[in-house]
């Protein structure tokens, strides 16, 4: 990995667009996908985009009130009209957009996200233990569904840590 791919910069607090919420970030998980973006394994889609797609934070209502804790995950939006969306496979939508790739993510004090794509989260758990659930947890769950583990079956997981040699 090239050294220091990230730069700490000051930017104005983003403004939530129609259908979006403004989120004040408490914690954000660091995922291998962030590393793929930093290393160029995944081509950048938008210059100078803040990475991070496991963001736990609090919704800031217009006027400044607290709108509760939410999670902002990788899937940011889909078209809702294509064949894949109609079949319940919005993850395969050709127009799908992603947090920290197509829009600024959670390596920031604030971010905006479509309200329909954020998840309510418990108030009583530490933000840093909730953050990894938003990608490692959710995508791991989908992977578990996809691998058709039979009742009482034996599951193997390859790659529990990344080591460079």
């Amino acid at each position: 990995m090239r050294s220091r791919p990230l730069a700490l910069v000051e930017r104005p607090v983003p403004v939530a667009g129609p259908g979006e919420v403004l989120v004040r970030v408490e914690a954000c998980g660091v995922c291998r996908t962030d590393l793929h973006l930093a290393e160029g394994d995944l081509r950048s889609r938008r210059p100078l985009t803040a990475p991070g797609h496991q963001a736990v934070g609090r919704v800031v209502r217009p006027g400044g009130g607290d709108g509760g804790r939410v999670g902002v995950a990788w899937l940011r939006s889909t078209c809702g009209r294509c064949r894949q969306c109609a079949r319940g496979l919005e993850n395969l939508c050709p127009e799908s957009a992603y947090t920290g790739w197509d829009a600024d993510g959670g390596f920031a004090e604030y971010l905006t996200a479509p309200a329909a794509y954020v998840y309510p989260l418990p108030e009583d758990a530490p933000a840093e233990t909730l953050a990894p659930l938003l990608c490692a947890g959710i995508v791991g769950y989908r992977a578990l569904l996809r691998c058709d583990l039979p009742e009482g079956g034996r599951l193997g997981v390859y790659g529990f840590a990344r080591r460079r040699t």
Binding site: G71, A73, W74, L75, G88, L89, E90, N91, L92, S96, Y98, A116, Y117, Y119, L121, L133, L134, G137, I138, V139, Y141, R142, A143, L145, R146
Partner: peptide, 13 residues
């Protein structure tokens, strides 16, 4: 496995 649906997210959480 390609990302996840919101239904996956809600079910897992």
């Amino acid at each position: 496995v390609t990302a996840n649906t919101r239904a996956d997210g809600r079910a897992y959480l």
